[in-house]
Amino acid sequence: MTANKKYIPYLLILPALLMLIMLTIFPLIWSFYTSTRDMTLFDLMMHGGSNVGIRNYTDLFKDSYFWNALKNSLIFVGISVFGQVFFGTLLASVLHSKFIKGKGLFRAIYLIPWIASSVIVAYSWIYFLDANLGFLPSMSYKWTFLNSIGLGRKDWLTNPSLVIFVLAVINIWKGTAFSMLMQSAGFQSIPDSVYEAAEVDGASILQRFSKITLPLLMPFILINLVMTTMITFNVYDIILVMTGGGPMHSSEVLSLFVYNVGFNQGELGYAAAASTVLLIMNLVTTILYLRYIKPVEVN
């Protein structure tokens, strides 16, 4: 009986483990295997594709489109993550304030962009920014002050040096709610008594923020950074719908590059190599976060 009981925990975690193996571990191994083969959609039908070792990787590092996508990814992820965590924390702190009424309503409103489908979000922004159909460009003919504050331009989605930044802002708009939820949990975990004690000791608002709030929020910020970075590295749907990665690949991020190479051009082996690089970038970023951002002890 005791011996049987010993196995029960293993039995209980078995379904989850099997799911993990089937849905994550096996596809990862398969993807890595595919990345070592010269495999197209056509080869798939012909059962195979030949083994090319690391050639897909060496070709990738010689491909200017890959480096362009990598550069775009770093810009897109950098701006998005900073913006989402910053604004998420700001919104969470505002909603945590005892002076705000109707917090539930505000929280629900802020969540709308996050829960909306990416395609709907993309089309909403197209109808806001598109040079021909967009609200902002068409309003700029009527409201000329928009031109004087720099919002009257028509090339939001077509200027190669601007478009990736515009897409990052849209991604911040969509993803901030996620950060806000994470940070809200952090704020709620800080007991009021800590602030009350600090207030009695004469701590200013700034001191309370820097010595209490920020250190106690740090574990949540860390998790937030890791998750937001991973999610943002994999974002491609909004970009695909809004610009298709153009013009001239100027808004093509790495995940969209993988999609285009794999599913439009049918180069499965090459796309698998690029997705392995994407995975490694995600892992390295996560390790760096965990290594360099440490929770601070509060005295």
Binding site: D130, N132, K154, D155, L157, V241
Partner: peptide, 23 residues
């Protein structure tokens, strides 16, 4: 016509819609 007018349409359908709408 300006470059942004013709580069902007995310798809042929968006361009067609702009034309029918009088752009």
């Amino acid at each position: 016509v300006a470059p942004e007018d013709v580069l902007s349409p995310a798809s042929g359908e968006v361009y067609d819609q702009a034309f029918v709408n009088g752009k």
